[in-house]
Amino acid sequence: MSQGGSIAYHLRQNKAIERNLFVDLLSRVGRYVNISNYSYIGFGGPFLEDFKHLHSALRISKMISLEMDPNVYKRQMFNRPISCISLRNESSGDFLNNYEFDNEAGNIVWFDYATTDITSQLTETQRLVEKLGHGDIFKITVNASPTALGEPQDRSKMLEYRAEVLANRLSSYGPAEVTADSVATKNYPKTLLAAIMSAVKHGLAGDPSIVLQPLAAFVYSDGQQMLTVTGVLLHRDEIERFLEQSRLPFWSFFNADCLAPKSISVPVLSAKERVHIESMLPEAGVEDIQNALDFYTASTERVAQEEMSNFVNFYRMFPWYSRVVL
């Protein structure tokens, strides 16, 4: 939490898209249960933007922000945008030790980790799920950049070194064997996703009446590659009804098993480029857009096509940034 206190998350477009997708997801879950009665618990950062967004979009008014850094906590006291946010100057670990969740009213918990201590984060994920109950929703965000695993003196053995480091860090949450492929940049988020799913299953081991229904998993990069996964805890015999009423199987970004995350990586566009591209949507495809532009919006044609394909999928969630004089 403390390391995220100086990061301007509200200016990071891929994370902003992922945040908007989270609100969209919760609104769909709201077709099944009254989300506005839930408590929301998360890491607010200095500006508490996520809290304001969730309150505005979903009318959630029971909110708790956790912040370990005393200085960031003071900034939160100054910047608190709405009065219904309870600010707590404590770590997520201490919070889990001390807090009794209201499993009757329902909870949404987002642990958005800014540090790279995946071992403690997986342990906290298990502890969190152990304390949550039926109908509760959790979201876990972790650093998914393999550079966090360090570098050996002999760089020719980079992947083997990182595989060994990760195997030790994942402990009982990891697969029987962590290979060099497991820590390659494109595969590392999938490896971590499997470990988070394992931690959740460990957390559910004490209550066979509750099962996990995965909802979404995304990987994105705004400087550092990040992985985020969301799930809901339900009784096994209600899953079919939940999916039918929420209509999540018809949501383009629904991830029913969370075996692999979906990528959010959109191009950096000028205002003129974006207006021109959006004027062609939703009918135009990537090839139509590229032909109309007659240039690439990334360093290579392949990357430009991948990012433009994501833009076509996510453009409704894409934030607008502008200069405002107050």
Rank of each mutant, 00 (worst) to 15 (best):
V165C: 10
L58S: 05
G44Q: 08
F43I: 15
M63A: 08
M77S: 09
E124P: 00
L54M: 13
P152E: 05
P70K: 07
D69G: 04
L25R: 05
S83W: 03
F47K: 12
N103A: 04
G106K: 02
K62W: 08
V29T: 11
Y113M: 11
T116V: 08
G93D: 10
I64V: 14
K52Y: 11
T119F: 03
T119D: 13
V109M: 04
P146R: 01
S120M: 02
N143F: 01
S91F: 08
K52D: 12
T119L: 00
E124S: 08
F95Q: 01
S36D: 07
Q126T: 14
F101S: 04
K157E: 15
M68I: 13
T141F: 00
E151Q: 12
V109D: 01
M158D: 13
S86I: 10
T123M: 00
R28E: 05
Y113T: 12
S120H: 15
G45V: 08
E160K: 08
G135K: 06
R31Q: 14
Y99M: 04
A148E: 10
W110K: 12
A57T: 11
M158S: 08
R31Y: 02
T141N: 13
I85D: 01
F51W: 06
V165L: 05
H53I: 15
S83C: 04
N97R: 15
Q153A: 12
L58H: 04
N103W: 03
I118N: 09
S120R: 15
N103L: 13
G44L: 05
I35A: 02
A148H: 05
Y99S: 06
P146S: 06
N37I: 07
S145H: 10
K157P: 03
D102F: 04
S27H: 09
W110H: 07
R88V: 13
D154Q: 06
R127T: 12
E160V: 09
